[in-house]
Design a binder for these strands. Structure first.
Lengths: 126, 126
DNA sequence: ATATGTACCATGTTACAGCATGGTACATGT
DNA sequence: ACATGTACCATGCTGTAACATGGTACATAT
Protein backbone atom coordinates (compact mmCIF):
# COMPACT_ATOMS: atom_id res chain seq x y z
CA UNK A 1 0.00 0.00 0.00
CA UNK A 2 1.58 3.21 -1.16
CA UNK A 3 -0.24 5.57 1.12
CA UNK A 4 1.08 8.95 2.06
CA UNK A 5 -0.21 10.68 5.16
CA UNK A 6 0.36 14.37 5.65
CA UNK A 7 0.25 15.19 9.32
CA UNK A 8 0.39 18.91 8.57
CA UNK A 9 -2.64 18.86 6.32
CA UNK A 10 -5.90 20.26 7.54
CA UNK A 11 -7.61 17.25 6.04
CA UNK A 12 -8.31 14.74 8.82
CA UNK A 13 -6.10 11.68 8.76
CA UNK A 14 -9.00 9.24 8.44
CA UNK A 15 -10.27 11.27 5.49
CA UNK A 16 -6.89 11.10 3.80
CA UNK A 17 -6.95 7.36 4.22
CA UNK A 18 -10.41 7.04 2.72
CA UNK A 19 -9.55 9.24 -0.23
CA UNK A 20 -6.38 7.36 -1.06
CA UNK A 21 -7.93 3.93 -0.78
CA UNK A 22 -10.82 4.99 -2.97
CA UNK A 23 -8.33 6.41 -5.43
CA UNK A 24 -6.37 3.17 -5.48
CA UNK A 25 -9.57 1.32 -6.30
CA UNK A 26 -10.55 3.70 -9.04
CA UNK A 27 -7.12 3.53 -10.63
CA UNK A 28 -7.21 -0.25 -10.57
CA UNK A 29 -4.29 -0.59 -8.19
CA UNK A 30 -6.71 -2.40 -5.91
CA UNK A 31 -9.15 -4.80 -7.51
CA UNK A 32 -12.26 -6.42 -6.03
CA UNK A 33 -11.26 -9.30 -3.80
CA UNK A 34 -7.80 -7.97 -3.09
CA UNK A 35 -6.79 -8.07 0.55
CA UNK A 36 -6.14 -4.90 2.48
CA UNK A 37 -3.70 -4.58 5.35
CA UNK A 38 -5.18 -5.21 8.75
CA UNK A 39 -6.13 -2.25 10.85
CA UNK A 40 -3.27 -2.76 13.26
CA UNK A 41 -0.84 -3.42 10.45
CA UNK A 42 -1.71 -0.28 8.52
CA UNK A 43 -1.78 1.79 11.67
CA UNK A 44 1.68 0.59 12.51
CA UNK A 45 3.05 1.22 9.00
CA UNK A 46 1.74 4.76 8.90
CA UNK A 47 2.41 5.51 12.54
CA UNK A 48 -1.25 6.08 13.18
CA UNK A 49 -3.54 5.01 15.97
CA UNK A 50 -5.62 1.90 15.47
CA UNK A 51 -8.78 3.90 15.98
CA UNK A 52 -7.98 6.26 13.18
CA UNK A 53 -7.53 3.47 10.68
CA UNK A 54 -10.54 1.64 12.07
CA UNK A 55 -12.62 4.73 11.52
CA UNK A 56 -11.58 4.96 7.90
CA UNK A 57 -12.28 1.28 7.35
CA UNK A 58 -15.67 1.57 9.02
CA UNK A 59 -16.71 4.37 6.70
CA UNK A 60 -15.32 2.59 3.66
CA UNK A 61 -17.30 -0.50 4.52
CA UNK A 62 -20.48 1.49 4.98
CA UNK A 63 -19.98 2.83 1.48
CA UNK A 64 -19.42 -0.72 0.20
CA UNK A 65 -15.93 0.00 -1.00
CA UNK A 66 -14.39 -2.64 1.24
CA UNK A 67 -15.64 -5.71 3.07
CA UNK A 68 -14.57 -6.87 6.49
CA UNK A 69 -14.75 -10.59 7.05
CA UNK A 70 -14.06 -10.65 10.74
CA UNK A 71 -10.97 -12.61 11.63
CA UNK A 72 -10.32 -13.28 7.95
CA UNK A 73 -9.31 -9.73 7.27
CA UNK A 74 -10.51 -6.97 5.01
CA UNK A 75 -11.00 -7.11 1.26
CA UNK A 76 -12.00 -4.87 -1.59
CA UNK A 77 -15.75 -5.00 -2.21
CA UNK A 78 -16.93 -6.67 -5.45
CA UNK A 79 -18.63 -3.46 -6.53
CA UNK A 80 -15.95 -1.22 -5.09
CA UNK A 81 -15.20 0.45 -8.39
CA UNK A 82 -18.58 2.04 -8.86
CA UNK A 83 -19.24 2.46 -5.16
CA UNK A 84 -16.06 4.43 -4.77
CA UNK A 85 -17.40 6.89 -7.28
CA UNK A 86 -20.68 7.45 -5.51
CA UNK A 87 -20.00 10.16 -3.02
CA UNK A 88 -22.51 10.12 -0.24
CA UNK A 89 -21.29 13.54 0.71
CA UNK A 90 -22.61 15.03 -2.48
CA UNK A 91 -26.03 13.65 -1.82
CA UNK A 92 -25.93 14.94 1.73
CA UNK A 93 -24.68 18.32 0.60
CA UNK A 94 -27.39 18.71 -2.00
CA UNK A 95 -30.21 17.87 0.36
CA UNK A 96 -28.88 20.14 3.05
CA UNK A 97 -28.29 22.95 0.60
CA UNK A 98 -31.87 23.10 -0.51
CA UNK A 99 -33.14 22.98 3.06
CA UNK A 100 -30.81 25.76 4.16
CA UNK A 101 -31.61 27.88 1.15
CA UNK A 102 -35.30 27.66 2.00
CA UNK A 103 -34.64 28.68 5.58
CA UNK A 104 -32.51 31.63 4.56
CA UNK A 105 -35.29 32.72 2.26
CA UNK A 106 -37.63 32.61 5.25
CA UNK A 107 -35.49 35.28 6.87
CA UNK A 108 -33.66 33.03 9.28
CA UNK A 109 -30.20 34.14 10.30
CA UNK A 110 -27.26 31.88 9.65
CA UNK A 111 -26.64 31.98 13.35
CA UNK A 112 -30.15 30.79 14.09
CA UNK A 113 -29.85 28.02 11.57
CA UNK A 114 -26.64 26.91 13.21
CA UNK A 115 -28.21 26.93 16.64
CA UNK A 116 -31.21 24.92 15.49
CA UNK A 117 -28.92 22.49 13.72
CA UNK A 118 -26.78 22.01 16.80
CA UNK A 119 -29.86 21.45 18.93
CA UNK A 120 -31.14 18.75 16.63
CA UNK A 121 -27.81 16.99 16.28
CA UNK A 122 -27.03 16.99 19.99
CA UNK A 123 -30.41 15.63 21.02
CA UNK A 124 -30.48 12.41 19.06
CA UNK A 125 -34.17 13.13 18.45
CA UNK A 126 -34.61 13.60 14.74
CA UNK B 1 -39.22 48.69 31.32
CA UNK B 2 -38.86 46.13 34.07
CA UNK B 3 -36.20 44.01 32.48
CA UNK B 4 -33.90 41.80 34.43
CA UNK B 5 -30.63 40.64 32.95
CA UNK B 6 -28.77 37.73 34.43
CA UNK B 7 -25.11 37.97 33.58
CA UNK B 8 -24.45 34.54 35.04
CA UNK B 9 -27.05 32.83 32.90
CA UNK B 10 -25.95 30.69 29.99
CA UNK B 11 -28.69 32.31 27.95
CA UNK B 12 -27.14 35.03 25.76
CA UNK B 13 -27.91 38.56 26.87
CA UNK B 14 -29.55 39.52 23.59
CA UNK B 15 -31.75 36.43 23.85
CA UNK B 16 -32.82 37.38 27.35
CA UNK B 17 -33.79 40.79 26.04
CA UNK B 18 -35.84 39.33 23.21
CA UNK B 19 -37.61 36.89 25.47
CA UNK B 20 -38.56 39.51 28.03
CA UNK B 21 -39.79 42.02 25.48
CA UNK B 22 -41.87 39.35 23.79
CA UNK B 23 -43.22 38.37 27.17
CA UNK B 24 -44.14 41.95 27.98
CA UNK B 25 -46.06 42.14 24.72
CA UNK B 26 -47.86 38.88 25.33
CA UNK B 27 -48.85 39.88 28.83
CA UNK B 28 -50.17 43.19 27.60
CA UNK B 29 -47.65 45.28 29.47
CA UNK B 30 -46.59 46.60 26.10
CA UNK B 31 -49.31 47.32 23.59
CA UNK B 32 -49.05 47.99 19.85
CA UNK B 33 -47.89 51.53 19.27
CA UNK B 34 -46.19 51.88 22.63
CA UNK B 35 -42.73 53.36 22.51
CA UNK B 36 -39.69 51.37 23.51
CA UNK B 37 -36.56 52.82 25.05
CA UNK B 38 -33.90 53.77 22.57
CA UNK B 39 -31.03 51.40 22.01
CA UNK B 40 -28.56 53.64 23.79
CA UNK B 41 -30.98 54.34 26.62
CA UNK B 42 -31.76 50.70 27.29
CA UNK B 43 -28.12 49.71 26.97
CA UNK B 44 -27.24 52.34 29.55
CA UNK B 45 -30.00 51.30 31.94
CA UNK B 46 -29.03 47.67 31.85
CA UNK B 47 -25.30 48.28 31.69
CA UNK B 48 -25.08 46.56 28.36
CA UNK B 49 -23.27 47.41 25.17
CA UNK B 50 -25.19 49.23 22.46
CA UNK B 51 -24.51 46.41 20.04
CA UNK B 52 -26.11 43.85 22.27
CA UNK B 53 -29.34 45.79 22.53
CA UNK B 54 -29.21 46.64 18.84
CA UNK B 55 -28.93 42.97 18.03
CA UNK B 56 -32.01 42.15 20.06
CA UNK B 57 -33.95 44.99 18.45
CA UNK B 58 -32.86 43.90 14.99
CA UNK B 59 -34.13 40.38 15.54
CA UNK B 60 -37.35 41.63 17.09
CA UNK B 61 -38.01 43.82 14.12
CA UNK B 62 -37.34 41.01 11.70
CA UNK B 63 -40.00 39.01 13.53
CA UNK B 64 -42.38 41.99 13.30
CA UNK B 65 -42.65 42.36 17.05
CA UNK B 66 -41.33 45.90 17.03
CA UNK B 67 -40.96 48.64 14.45
CA UNK B 68 -38.07 51.04 14.12
CA UNK B 69 -38.93 54.41 12.67
CA UNK B 70 -35.46 55.75 12.23
CA UNK B 71 -34.78 58.84 14.24
CA UNK B 72 -38.32 58.72 15.65
CA UNK B 73 -37.55 55.77 17.87
CA UNK B 74 -38.82 52.23 18.20
CA UNK B 75 -42.39 51.13 18.75
CA UNK B 76 -44.37 47.98 19.32
CA UNK B 77 -45.60 46.50 16.06
CA UNK B 78 -49.36 46.58 15.36
CA UNK B 79 -49.46 42.80 15.10
CA UNK B 80 -46.89 42.28 17.82
CA UNK B 81 -49.18 40.15 19.94
CA UNK B 82 -49.56 37.32 17.45
CA UNK B 83 -46.13 37.77 15.94
CA UNK B 84 -44.53 37.38 19.34
CA UNK B 85 -46.09 33.95 19.54
CA UNK B 86 -44.73 32.78 16.21
CA UNK B 87 -41.32 31.35 16.82
CA UNK B 88 -39.19 31.31 13.72
CA UNK B 89 -36.89 28.89 15.44
CA UNK B 90 -39.59 26.26 15.52
CA UNK B 91 -40.10 26.58 11.81
CA UNK B 92 -36.38 26.34 11.22
CA UNK B 93 -36.07 23.39 13.55
CA UNK B 94 -38.88 21.50 11.88
CA UNK B 95 -37.54 21.94 8.38
CA UNK B 96 -34.04 20.98 9.42
CA UNK B 97 -35.30 18.00 11.36
CA UNK B 98 -36.98 16.42 8.38
CA UNK B 99 -33.96 17.02 6.16
CA UNK B 100 -31.59 15.51 8.70
CA UNK B 101 -33.85 12.55 9.34
CA UNK B 102 -33.84 11.78 5.62
CA UNK B 103 -30.06 11.97 5.50
CA UNK B 104 -29.66 9.71 8.49
CA UNK B 105 -31.97 7.23 6.82
CA UNK B 106 -29.68 7.34 3.79
CA UNK B 107 -26.88 6.01 5.99
CA UNK B 108 -25.04 9.25 6.52
CA UNK B 109 -23.09 9.59 9.72
CA UNK B 110 -23.85 12.45 12.06
CA UNK B 111 -20.26 13.46 11.64
CA UNK B 112 -20.62 13.62 7.89
CA UNK B 113 -23.80 15.61 8.14
CA UNK B 114 -22.02 18.07 10.38
CA UNK B 115 -19.14 18.41 7.96
CA UNK B 116 -21.44 19.00 5.00
CA UNK B 117 -23.44 21.49 7.01
CA UNK B 118 -20.33 23.40 8.03
CA UNK B 119 -19.12 23.46 4.45
CA UNK B 120 -22.37 24.92 3.21
CA UNK B 121 -22.65 27.51 5.93
CA UNK B 122 -19.06 28.68 5.65
CA UNK B 123 -19.20 29.08 1.90
CA UNK B 124 -22.07 31.53 1.56
CA UNK B 125 -23.07 29.52 -1.48
CA UNK B 126 -26.47 28.04 -0.78
C1' DA C 1 -26.86 70.66 19.20
C1' DT C 2 -29.25 66.48 20.04
C1' DA C 3 -31.04 61.96 19.44
C1' DT C 4 -32.48 58.17 16.55
C1' DG C 5 -31.14 53.59 14.13
C1' DT C 6 -27.46 51.73 11.59
C1' DA C 7 -22.94 50.53 9.84
C1' DC C 8 -18.04 49.69 9.84
C1' DC C 9 -13.46 48.88 12.05
C1' DA C 10 -11.64 45.83 15.83
C1' DT C 11 -10.62 42.70 20.27
C1' DG C 12 -10.91 39.00 23.90
C1' DT C 13 -13.35 35.27 26.14
C1' DT C 14 -15.71 31.15 26.30
C1' DA C 15 -17.83 26.91 24.97
C1' DC C 16 -18.22 23.14 22.01
C1' DA C 17 -17.14 19.55 18.72
C1' DG C 18 -14.06 17.18 15.98
C1' DC C 19 -9.76 14.79 15.72
C1' DA C 20 -6.38 11.81 17.39
C1' DT C 21 -4.48 9.46 20.92
C1' DG C 22 -3.98 5.71 24.82
C1' DG C 23 -5.33 1.36 27.13
C1' DT C 24 -8.11 -2.71 27.85
C1' DA C 25 -11.19 -6.25 26.53
C1' DC C 26 -14.14 -9.32 23.82
C1' DA C 27 -15.76 -13.15 20.37
C1' DT C 28 -14.26 -14.90 16.35
C1' DG C 29 -11.64 -18.57 14.00
C1' DT C 30 -6.87 -20.10 12.45
C1' DA D 1 -0.90 -18.81 21.01
C1' DC D 2 -2.17 -15.63 17.47
C1' DA D 3 -4.54 -12.24 14.56
C1' DT D 4 -8.83 -10.37 12.97
C1' DG D 5 -12.52 -6.56 13.60
C1' DT D 6 -14.93 -4.34 17.17
C1' DA D 7 -16.25 -2.07 21.45
C1' DC D 8 -15.75 0.33 25.73
C1' DC D 9 -13.26 3.31 29.14
C1' DA D 10 -10.66 7.79 28.91
C1' DT D 11 -7.50 12.25 27.78
C1' DG D 12 -5.57 16.42 25.33
C1' DC D 13 -5.17 19.47 21.32
C1' DT D 14 -7.11 22.54 18.03
C1' DG D 15 -9.97 25.16 15.49
C1' DT D 16 -14.25 27.55 15.05
C1' DA D 17 -18.05 30.36 16.13
C1' DA D 18 -20.88 32.71 19.12
C1' DC D 19 -21.03 36.27 22.46
C1' DA D 20 -20.02 40.66 24.19
C1' DT D 21 -17.27 44.42 24.25
C1' DG D 22 -14.96 49.00 22.44
C1' DG D 23 -14.64 53.01 19.26
C1' DT D 24 -15.94 55.83 15.32
C1' DA D 25 -18.95 57.51 11.84
C1' DC D 26 -23.05 58.36 8.99
C1' DA D 27 -27.85 60.20 7.37
C1' DT D 28 -31.89 61.15 9.32
C1' DA D 29 -34.85 64.85 11.39
C1' DT D 30 -36.12 67.49 15.53
Amino acid sequence: MQITIDIESSVPLFAQLIAQIKQAVQQGNKKPGDALPSIRQLANDLNLNNKTVAKAYRLLERDCVIQTRGYRGTYVHPDARENSLVDLNELVTEKLKSAIAALRASGATDSEIRVAFAAIMSSGDA
